[in-house]
């Protein structure tokens, strides 16, 4: 189906390499479903629970002792903004999963404040995902998910759970918060998987 919008010319064609339907922003907009949780690092804890119930646990000090990486990636939000070459520092999920024994295929990320989002485990490994705690050289602000958030930049940003507190491994792909509310279960920006069924 193709209709022309009478009188619409559009802004200059940027020619930049954005996923379909995205526009470029220099700002860093915020999408959150509720009030911003304010979690102090000394009260922070991150866990990975396997499908057999085995728990792996890090407090802030133990987490900070893990090898950190500098990460520069483009971000794509389902609300259509993209922000290029953002600078982060965080711990690779590969490091966190080093001693985790699992045969599960899926992960539910849980956040302080109750947010959840579901991802395939393979999207979190092999240098694709981090628990990030610095943005642009500064401690990550609470409104952007501080003290630490999941960062999975190859998927729409709602998958990069702010205020992350744990991952629960599962054999089934259950739906998280926005996924239950009508958003896509996977969320690949290059395939424009915004909403269920896309």
């Amino acid at each position: 189906m193709g209709i022309i919008s009478p009188g619409f010319t559009g802004r200059g064609r940027s020619g930049s390499d954005l996923p379909p339907g995205q526009y470029l922003t220099q700002d860093f907009p915020v999408l959150s479903a509720g009030p911003t949780p304010h979690v102090l690092p000394e009260h922070w804890e991150f866990t990975i629970a396997t499908e057999s119930g085995e728990m792996h646990r890090w407090d802030w000090a133990a987490f900070q002792r893990l090898p950190a990486e500098e990460i520069t990636r483009d971000l794509h939000c389902v609300t259509r903004w993209s922000k290029l070459a953002t600078d982060w520092k965080g711990v690779s999920l590969d490091a966190l999963f080093e001693d985790v024994e699992t045969a599960a295929d899926f992960v539910m990320a849980h956040s302080y404040g109750g947010y959840t989002t579901n991802l395939p485990l393979e999207d979190l490994l092999d240098g694709q995902a981090w628990i990030a705690y610095q943005y642009d050289g500064e401690p990550l602000a609470a409104e952007h998910g501080g003290p630490a958030r999941l960062l999975v930049p190859h998927l729409y940003l709602w998958k990069s759970a702010k205020w992350v507190r744990g991952l629960v491994l599962s054999d089934t792909d259950d739906l998280g918060f926005w996924e239950t509310a009508g958003y896509h279960e996977y969320g690949d920006p290059w395939k424009e998987q915004r909403y269920a069924g896309d």
């Binding site: 907009p29 915020v30 959150s32 509720g34 009030p35 911003t36 949780p37």
Partner: peptide, 30 residues
């Protein structure tokens, strides 16, 4: 706008509202 929602939601939580009962929608930059 994001700064408005951040400020009001923080006031509500500080004032004793259950964060789970405060639904927010933000737009624009921080």
């Amino acid at each position: 706008p994001t700064p408005f929602v951040e400020a009001v939601a923080d006031l509500l939580v500080t004032g004793g509202h259950d964060p789970a009962r405060v639904r927010t929608e933000r737009f624009g930059p921080t």
